[in-house]
Design a protein around this nucleic acid. Sequence first.
RNA 1: GCACCCGUAGCUCAGCUGGAUAGAGCAUCAGCUUGCGGAGCUGGGGGUCGCAGGUUCAAAUCCUGCCGGGUGCACCA
Length: 567
Amino acid sequence: MYPIQKAKQQILQELKKAVGGGFSPSIDDFALPPDPSLGDVAFPCFTLAKNLKRNPNEIATEIAAKIGPKEFIADVRAIGPYVNFVFSSEFGTSILSDISEREETYGRSNVGENKRVMIEYANLNTHKDVHIGHLRNLFLGQMLISVLEANGYDVIPVAYINDLGAHVAKSVWAISKFHKDEEVSKENQIDFLREVYVEATKAVEENPAYKEEVAAVFRNLEEQRGDEVKIWKKTWQWSVDFLEEVYTELNIKLEKWYFESDLIGKTRKIIDDLIKKGIVIQSEGAWIVDLEEEKLGVNLLVKSDGTLLYNAKDLGLALKKEEDYHPTRSIYVVDARQSHAIQQLFATLARMKFERELYHLAYEFVTLSDGVMASRTGNVIRYETFRDRLITQAQKATKERHSDWDEKQIESTSRLIAFAAMRFGMLKQDVEKKIIFDFNEALSFEGFSGPYLLYSFARIQNLFNKAGKVKPILDAQSLNHPLEHQLITQLARYPEVLFEISQTYQLNQLARYLFDLCQVFSHYYNEVPILKSEKSVQTSRLGLIQSVEQVLKNGLWLMGIEPIDEM
RNA sequence: GCACCCGUAGCUCAGCUGGAUAGAGCAUCAGCUUGCGGAGCUGGGGGUCGCAGGUUCAAAUCCUGCCGGGUGCACCA
């Protein structure tokens, strides 16, 4: 049990005693005071007042009078209808030593024990670019994995690679028609594919007769016959190599890659079976599941030309995942624009008596202020472009600060700053809000940003470097400054925050929490001398700072951000 | 037409399982390096929490309706 939980338990005990009469408040009844000067935790007396038919202010006053300082409680005071509790220095000491003992495990829980969660994310396409919209998906998925693992879940992260959709057929068709036998050098492969895709889209738009040719290529690819298969296989490999590079660079963890092209046979079998069961029926020449009852329209699985649709293959995938890993819960980290399709998938699976927990973690897309990104038109900001601009920006700033550093040091530091900015930028916002991508904002290293957190971390490192042999001690006895108290309370909350996120999947909460922590630290750093204070206080302050460092490190790790000692 | 999401300061967003004076970043203005790194800190100005009803002792938060924006809804993924 974490100190914060112990403290709350103690308070609950005291509240029970003070009120009596079978009153049993729960840990969820606590509130956070709006201003830290009011107290560390609050107990609102409204419901109690209602039950007793009395004034909440009076009740609060009475309760506060009955509870005295004890262990983790230093002070109890009634402010209006609230009983506010202030944590004691014993509590502070307990927090500091708890963090020090647990180190990187501070904040973790075991709620997820014996639960296997499959996370499908990083569903990139072959024959296409990776752009900033995909980054949101990659980072969300990656963080979700870390958060769930930190809470004891057995997490199986997988990707579903879309390597056989209509877009692929279009590209392969265009290559065979316009670029047959063209030599493409290794470094130009992805550029080539991108240009071909834009070219193909344009050509088909201008000449609708091409549609039939593309459809023919699609059929051939699905059946794995004809000359186009060779082109497909070659370009497929280009794309897969490229995706592998991106995943490696971003440290994307995957237990397995599922490919759409591998699911054709299995999906066909499933559909045959569903036809026999009457779940899949024919309509207007196509094969569908009628989901009118669920108010989800029709789930179109097989086109009238016999080729499979995305929704059909998703069915095959769901069963394959079940065979391979039998997860208790399956999370789909997928763009909110697919919500309807995903709901159709879930509803269809329900009809098939597929009884597993299914959850769609829907996130809104990344858009540009001048319009939505689309690979079709080439109006995208590619991952590499974004990355390189961030790195350049970071290099500029780093060079200005450290004229004495060599190229290597500038380079490695800049990369870490750039990736921190990138990740934090994508993870700081609620998934239900689209990100309006703005280069100026994305390249800013100030305020609510990744580099701000890194900066706080680097400052702490610097303090320890300067402290030399002075050993921090873990004792809150002399940490009486309001900001010290505030820091301790904030550190104490971390396990609650992490637990909450693991249950609600509101990943942006962590960015907020860490930023708040760093803001209090920065304020403290400016306000209170740490190294220049007298010895006894100095060691305690270093002990506090050490805890801030640990929690910051733990949180950054969950976000996939690597801290740096100097920047 | 139906469904889902959003609508809080000039801009980008927190806060939304109802509760104490509505917060942050950016921008803007005024300050802070003879004190541990100014990628920082302090302070000021700036808000009918889209609008209207309702529920409640209490609504930015819950319910209903409307307005505005986005997204999706049978052969795309």
